[in-house]
């Protein structure tokens, strides 16, 4: 029967596009970098003077708020009606992961800012053009006694932000590729991976003076572990889909074998994002070479891979419906 029912475009429209993919990436990057910063602080920094911040912590404290603000901006601009975003703040639906996400972000974002100000307290006061912030700094100073609690709270909030983006997608049973309980864990682990990479990158580029090679080494080991977790997670993710009912198996098959996005998965996500860094990290660790250029490129590759995973999941999910 030749079609006589008009356009069918609305059934295959990509409703969540690059902006959402990047938002998911940025939210992950933000939470990952702050988690990594906190881990470094707790594990590698206990005996040193707390006022001399490790470059990794500095990097995390800058990246986290920047990434989340950029992400949120992107998110709001991407709404069909950006100016109506305030409804998100005055109405809540506890069954909606998006609504929960708004709550998490409302808690997370200010703490991230406070954390940043705590880290950069001195440099902020030094700069005359930041003087107007002094009142705020004084306020922040009064938090010093609660620093540890704030850190724990921040860690928890960051875990929520890092995994909610996965839950955001995984609750949608209309989209087989997203409807997997492994997606939040997968997103969280890759967030950590990107957090490690971005902190090393920013630390090396902007806070070289406070670089602590021990921290870097610690992070590279951490990253290797994360990647080694992520690979089997991805495997399990697809195996889960193949054994799920309904449209999931055919969607998963198509997503792995058909068209542009299958290519992105194998070359981008697996090859560039996981394979390459794994290879280099192992080589680097074995030969104890910490050449800066080497590590910078490695970090960029990891970040690219994480970004491509978000792109892949967002697009392939909407395209391959089984």
């Amino acid at each position: 029967m030749s079609p006589m029912w008009g356009s069918v475009e609305q059934y295959s429209t990509i409703h969540w596009s690059w902006a959402i993919a990047i938002y998911l990436f940025l939210a992950g990057l933000s939470s990952g970098s702050i988690i990594v910063a906190l881990l470094v602080k707790w594990n590698r920094h206990e005996r040193s003077n707390s006022s001399i911040w490790d470059a990794m912590i500095k990097a995390g404290s800058v990246v986290a708020p920047t990434a989340i603000f950029l992400g949120l901006l992107l998110l709001v601009v991407d709404l069909g009606r950006p100016l109506s975003f305030y409804w998100l703040l005055i109405r809540y639906n506890i069954t909606s992961v998006m609504s929960l996400g708004v709550l998490f972000l409302l808690i997370y974002t200010p703490i991230v800012v406070v954390f940043m100000l705590l880290v950069f307290e001195r440099s902020v006061i030094k700069h005359p053009f930041l003087a107007p912030l002094e009142g705020l700094i004084n306020l922040v100073k009064s938090f010093h006694s609660y620093a540890k609690i704030i850190e724990y709270f921040l860690f928890a909030a960051a875990l929520c932000v890092g995994s909610y983006t996965g839950f955001l997608l995984s609750v949608l049973y209309a989209i087989p590729l997203w409807n997997s309980p492994l997606l939040p864990i997968l997103f969280l682990t890759s967030s950590l991976s990107s957090g490690v990479a971005v902190n090393i990158l920013i630390g090396l580029l902007f806070f070289k003076s406070t670089i602590n090679t021990e921290s870097i080494k610690y992070l590279l080991v951490l990253d290797t572990r994360v990647i080694l977790t992520e690979l089997p997670l991805l495997g399990l993710f697809f195996i889960g889909l193949f054994y799920a009912g309904g449209d999931a198996p055919s969607a998963a098959k198509a997503a792995l074998t058909e068209g542009f996005w299958a290519g992105i998965f194998w070359l981008g996500v697996i090859g560039v994002g996981l394979g390459l860094p794994l290879l280099t990290v192992i080589v680097a660790l074995r030969s104890h070479v910490y050449r800066v250029g080497y590590i910078v490129i490695n970090s960029m590759v990891v970040i690219l891979g994480v970004l491509m995973l978000r792109y892949y999941i967002i697009y392939a999910g909407q395209i391959y419906l089984g």
């Binding site: 998100l88 809540y92 998006m98």
Partner: peptide, 30 residues
């Protein structure tokens, strides 16, 4: 999934959309 309750169910069980509070996040479409 609607974060603003713009999509709602009436007492007769019909699903409607309150245009005013729909921010067009497209979550419901997905």
């Amino acid at each position: 999934v609607c974060p603003t309750n713009a999509s709602f169910q009436s007492k007769d069980g019909l699903v409607h959309i309150d245009e005013k509070s729909c921010i067009s996040c497209k979550y419901c479409i997905l």
